[in-house]
């Protein structure tokens, strides 16, 4: 146990030494990680926000089912049971025609004056269900199921608009993820090459280490830790940019992008999460890059 600890502390010491001894090489790796992480950070912020306002909009999505004029209270009970059984239903609300009338009267004076002399019997409006769904992408399926039920005359959920919006957002998200992954792959390759140069300059040392019986683990570890340090240093600027950039962006737009419809994510604790992800990606990229670079030198 002590042995592993000693070896680890030696590895960390060597890694720091190597970072500063080969500073020009390290700088190449660091700046390359920095540039990638800046773009990654922007993509993360964008895709999180897209996801957020997709959810916000989805939350507001409701299916409105209009019942036939002759629907009795028994029919309504029956429908409630059926709607409850549907998987995708999050919540529902029954609104009788009298309530609909009142709501509409409250909403506008024109309606108020027209509807004020409608009696309970000749109210031409229909009883309605307002149903919220769990998954917006499944909304048209659910709407169709409800439409087929007895005594339902009409179903509305803003068909075309919703579908388009959901599709557009999910493709924006996919593009953002694609960009992030592609950038990470490119950076890993760049790191592999820069670390290879560092290793090449220490080839003699490695060969002697092998000769005197150092295990692959103890040869590899300093380089892997070095990669992690490079990743960590490389993520400093992107993290600062994420934190302060998003804060000022949020303030500048007052929390909304262009319209009241698109609400930005509150900066706290979002910036901490985003920074954490950026740091994690930086460290992982450095680690993977150096691990695969050093592997080639460890084959006999």
């Amino acid at each position: 146990m002590m042995k592993i600890f000693r070896m680890l502390s030696r590895s960390i010491r060597d890694a720091f030494k190597s970072v500063f001894r080969n500073f020009s090489l390290s700088l190449a790796s660091i700046s390359c990680i920095t540039i990638t992480l800046v773009i990654v950070a922007v993509s993360i912020i964008a895709s999180f926000n897209v996801e957020n306002f997709t959810k916000e909009i989805e939350k507001d999505l409701t299916i409105v089912a209009f019942l036939e004029q002759d629907a009795t209270s028994d029919d309504v009970e029956d429908l409630i049971k059926k709607i409850k059984k549907l998987d995708n239903v999050d919540s529902y609300e029954f609104k009788g025609k009298e309530k609909v009338k009142k709501d509409m009267q409250n909403e506008s004076e024109v309606f108020n004056s027209i509807m004020s002399d409608w009696s309970k019997e000749d109210n031409p409006l229909k009883d309605t269900f307002q149903i919220r769904v769990k998954d917006a992408e499944q909304i048209s399926k659910t709407a169709n199921k409800i439409k087929k039920m007895d005594k339902v005359s009409l179903v509305r959920y803003g068909e075309g608009m919703v579908d388009k919006l959901v599709n557009a957002f999910s493709s924006i998200e996919k593009v953002a993820y694609g960009v992030v992954i592609a950038l990470i792959v490119v950076t890993v390759f760049l790191i592999i090459n820069t670390i290879k140069l560092t290793i090449f300059s220490r080839k003699r040392e490695i060969s002697i280490m092998r000769l005197v019986g150092a295990s692959n683990f103890s040869i590899k570890t300093p380089f892997i830790i070095e990669g992690m340090i490079l990743g960590l240093i490389g993520s400093i600027i992107p993290v600062l940019l994420t934190t302060f950039g998003y804060l000022s962006f949020y303030k500048h737009f007052d929390g909304y992008l262009f319209t009241e419809l698109i609400k930005l994510i509150e900066p706290e604790p979002f910036i901490y999460t985003a920074s954490g992800i950026v740091i994690l990606i930086g460290i992982l990229v450095g680690m993977i890059g150096s691990a695969s670079a050093v592997r080639k030198y460890l084959k006999v």
Binding site: M7, R10, R204, E205, G213, S218
Partner: peptide, 20 residues
């Protein structure tokens, strides 16, 4: 096959250090 930047002592000790 000695390491030029290490002293005699360090070169010899190197073989033990890397074994922890």
């Amino acid at each position: 096959r000695l390491l030029p930047k290490l002293t005699v002592f360090e070169n010899v000790a190197f073989a033990m250090e890397v074994l922890g």
